[in-house]
Nucleic acid binder design. Structure first.
Length: 773
DNA sequence: CAGTGAGCGAGCTTCCGCTTGACTT
């Protein structure tokens, strides 16, 4: 017999709450939603006024049975899911599925997990808000309609197994359009002039205007040879810097990416661990709000550690579109826990959260900005030196926020004291060629930032959305080598002018998001036929209607009907009228053979075609795959033709031919009928024999190290070195070696024991056959 | 597993948002 059953969404939360509530309460978790639309069809019966068909998935059946049993026994059931649209729907689904008697069912919400807040919630129960539930149903059904009607069009018109959706398709669009901006970008150069003037400390100054070309730059530097430099004025201005708000899911992902290079999903996995261990509050939130308890605890630590003047109470307002304030910001549960046990990554992330939260309750930093204007005689140009001194560090004592902008910022140094009218002695004046910057590509985290700004997606879906667009092959996360760029620098030093031609590396990328050809083709297809759905404000527009439903001003079935009727018509029209899309581009004619050259998406990815299929004369075209980093959109005729030079023989090694080619798994070296993959930075069109031999030897070494142990009397049992360390291979299956075992010291009998203990072992997956994973 | 790009057809793929494990050759 249970007096009171409380159901929350997360088991970690259940554990905490149970402690507060005492023996009359049993707290259980629903583990999120307990049922969802059937996946067999649309999951919605159009003819029955959009009646949803909800199904309890197999992995939830056991849980639902348990909850049913517990709720039947309970005298009172408290539905304590989150206070937002999804939380309300979870409560409603629970009430429906568990067939809860309304008389003994109460809906409660609380915003912080403290004893007072929970007891207070229990004192103020309410019923289920059916309008809010209906707005969730509309959201869910609209997403299903978009996803399950658009995806099949892509299967027919582009490629099987592709997908489209309200969120993912916009994410892909952002990346495609960014790439096109970059492709269209023309960099231009200008000259930046810097001057170094003598003082107690040298003054670094920059010319207030950039010079457009080398002629102007040379003329100015020439002029400086005889010019005098006079301090025109010195101004000092106090400025302040305020701390950023505490973390939300998206800002945590951004900072962890900038500071530690964590991927978005890495950050979430680590944060989940911290949450389950009770070190931080919930990690999927869009709120920057801190509870009264947290504000108080932060104050105590700040005052005792740094003193009164470092504390500044701040309550931040959540500003992102669609924010639903169901939780607090991400913060430490106990501020006095400065360090936690755990992995290095867990400690780093915790430390970041601790510092960021604390900083948000600290005083502004007080700075003094000094500007010195320096006049150049007989010239309209002026040098400007700026310096910044921290007068009071405030929150900077614990936290400094990183930025995405990695361009070098000059002039933050300390400046010597100089007076207006004072003449300055130049040490060195240099005009250096600089270039306008193309827009930066998205990282995972900066894409999340952009999506959040547009109000698209939720904290719980940012990481999965990125996984999806990567898994579909729409987007690639890659490093790129930069290219060398020449630039000129004109330097005046010791009365002499010299011109230096230098080179620098530019355009290198690390872990950036690039669109693939298929991503671009799918995006262009959707843009042509379903422009509204993948427009940047589609989500914002439908959110307005969901809000109206939540307020009870609109019926959800009516909203869905108004959306679905025209949408479905468009789906049918597109299915009938649009062509099969291959993203084909005709590049021109091969000057040697006179045959046409084109590029398109083929069965196995992007492909260049030389010549046409001439069945009458039994002439077949030639095909060649594109190399990594090449795009259909930007491939030139020359690049296309050079792809036909593969495979090519580049020499001999140990009396056998060394051949370079591109196969199913990318570029390879073939030697003595063995294959060795080229590395990321190797170009199959230019690789030389020496490098190829290096790869062959490297491959041989790996091969040798692969076998740790074989047994003379039983060759079927092998101890091998794999991607995740040593393992045992036997009869075509693989077996894990228990942790702490020295693989090199394994005896034959021990191996057999391990094999026996693990039953069938795991069969290595052969490479994907048609359509199957 | 690596010089792939024939053709047909059955059967399958797919969304977003809540939540954790399971499990990795």
């Amino acid at each position: 017999m249970i007096e009171n059953l409380v159901i929350v969404e997360s088991p970690a939360k259940a554990k905490t709450i149970e402690k507060f509530l005492g023996k009359q309460f049993v707290v259980k978790s629903s583990f999120g939603h307990i049922r969802d639309l059937s996946k067999k069809n649309l999951g919605v019966e159009i003819a029955k006024n959009y009646k949803p068909e909800y199904i309890i998935s197999d992995d939830k059946k056991k849980l639902v049975d348990e909850l049913k049993k517990a709720s039947a026994e309970a005298q009172q059931v408290w539905l304590a899911s989150d206070e937002d649209r999804e939380g309300e729907a979870i409560a409603w689904h629970l009430a429906e599925v568990l067939k809860l008697d309304p008389k003994k069912t109460k809906r409660i919400v609380f915003h912080e997990i403290t004893k007072d807040a929970i007891l207070n919630a229990i004192k103020n129960p309410r019923g289920i808000d059916i309008n809010l539930v209906n707005s969730q149903q509309a959201r869910r059904i609209l997403d299903r309609m978009v996803g399950f009607e658009l995806s099949p069009i892509l299967w027919k018109k582009v490629k099987p197994s592709l997908s489209a959706g309200r969120v993912q398709s916009v994410a892909v669009r952002l990346i495609v359009e960014k790439e096109r901006e970059i492709i269209a970008f023309n960099s231009s150069s200008f000259f930046r002039v810097t001057g170094l003037f003598k003082g107690d400390v040298d003054i670094k100054a920059e010319l207030s205007s950039k010079l457009p070309n080398i002629k102007e730059a040379t003329r100015f530097i020439e002029h400086c040879k005889t010019a005098t430099f006079k301090v025109l004025d010195v101004t000092k201005k106090p400025t302040k810097k305020s701390p950023p708000p505490p973390f939300t899911t998206s800002t945590l992902q951004q900072e962890a990416s900038r500071k530690f290079n964590f991927s978005v999903s890495q950050t979430m996995t680590i944060a989940q661990k911290l949450y389950e261990s009770g070190y931080i509050t919930y990690m999927r939130t869009d709120s920057v709000n801190l509870s009264a308890t947290a504000l108080d605890a932060a104050k105590q630590i700040i005052v005792s550690e740094f003193g009164d003047k470092y504390h500044h109470l701040r309550q931040f307002k959540t500003k992102s579109k669609g924010a639903q304030e169901a939780h607090e910001a991400i913060r430490p549960t106990y501020f006095d826990k400065v360090k936690i046990p755990g992995s290095a990554a867990e400690q780093k992330l915790y430390d970041l959260i601790w510092k960021r939260t604390l900083a948000s309750q600290m005083s502004d930093a007080q700075l003094e900005k000094t500007t010195i204007n320096i006049e150049v005689s007989k010239s309209e140009h002026q040098f400007v030196a700026t310096g910044e001194v921290v007068v009071f560090d405030g929150f900077l004592k614990v936290y400094f926020e990183s930025t995405d902008d990695d361009s070098e910022e000059g002039g933050k140094d300390l400046l010597p004291s100089v007076k207006a009218g004072q003449l300055l002695d130049p040490k060195e004046i240099a005009a250096t060629e600089r270039f306008t910057q193309r827009p930066p590509r998205y990282t995972e985290a900066s894409l999340v930032k952009k999506l959040e700004e547009l109000g698209i997606g939720r904290p719980s879906t940012y990481a999965p959305t990125i996984s999806t667009i990567l898994a579909r092959g729409y987007v690639l996360k890659e490093d790129r080598q930069g290219v060398e760029r020449k630039y000129t620098s004109i330097v005046l030093k010791n009365g002499k002018i010299s011109q230096l031609d230098k080179t620098e590396n530019t355009g290198a990328e690390k872990s950036k998001l690039f669109p693939s050809d298929i991503g671009m083709v799918v995006n262009d297809f959707l843009l042509e036929y379903f422009k509204e759905i993948i427009s940047y404000n589609f989500t914002a527009n439908v959110e307005k209607e969901f809000d109206e439903i939540a307020l009870g001003n609109m019926e959800w079935t009516k909203m869905i009907d108004q959306f679905y009727k025209p949408f479905h018509k468009l789906v049918e029209k597109t299915t009938k009228e649009s062509d099969y899309t291959k993203g084909e581009r005709v590049l021109g004619v091969d000057p040697v053979s006179g045959k046409p050259v084109s590029v398109r998406i083929g069965r196995f990815g992007p492909v260049v075609q030389l010549g046409e299929n001439d069945t009458a004369n039994k002439i077949k075209p030639q095909f060649a795959s594109l190399l990594k980093g090449q795009l259909i959109e930007t491939l030139t005729l020359e690049e296309a033709l050079s792809l036909f030079k593969l495979p090519r023989t580049i020499g001999n090694y140990e009396d056998k031919e060394v051949v370079i080619g591109v196969g199913r798994f990318g570029p390879y070296v073939r030697h003595n009928s063995k294959f060795y993959s080229l590395k990321k930075d190797d170009n199959p069109l230019t690789i030389d024999l020496a490098r190829a031999i290096e790869l062959i030897e490297e491959g041989r070494k790996k091969e040798r190290e692969k076998v740790i142990k074989v047994f003379e009397h039983e060759e079927k049992v092998q101890v091998l070195n794999g991607r995740w360390g040593p393992y045992i291979a036997y009869n075509g299956a693989n077996y894990k070696i228990p942790k702490g075992t020295d693989a090199h010291a394994l005896a034959y009998e021990e191996c057999l024991k391990i094999i026996k203990n693990q039953g069938e072992g795991t069969k290595p997956k052969r490479f994907a056959k048609k359509g199957k994973k």
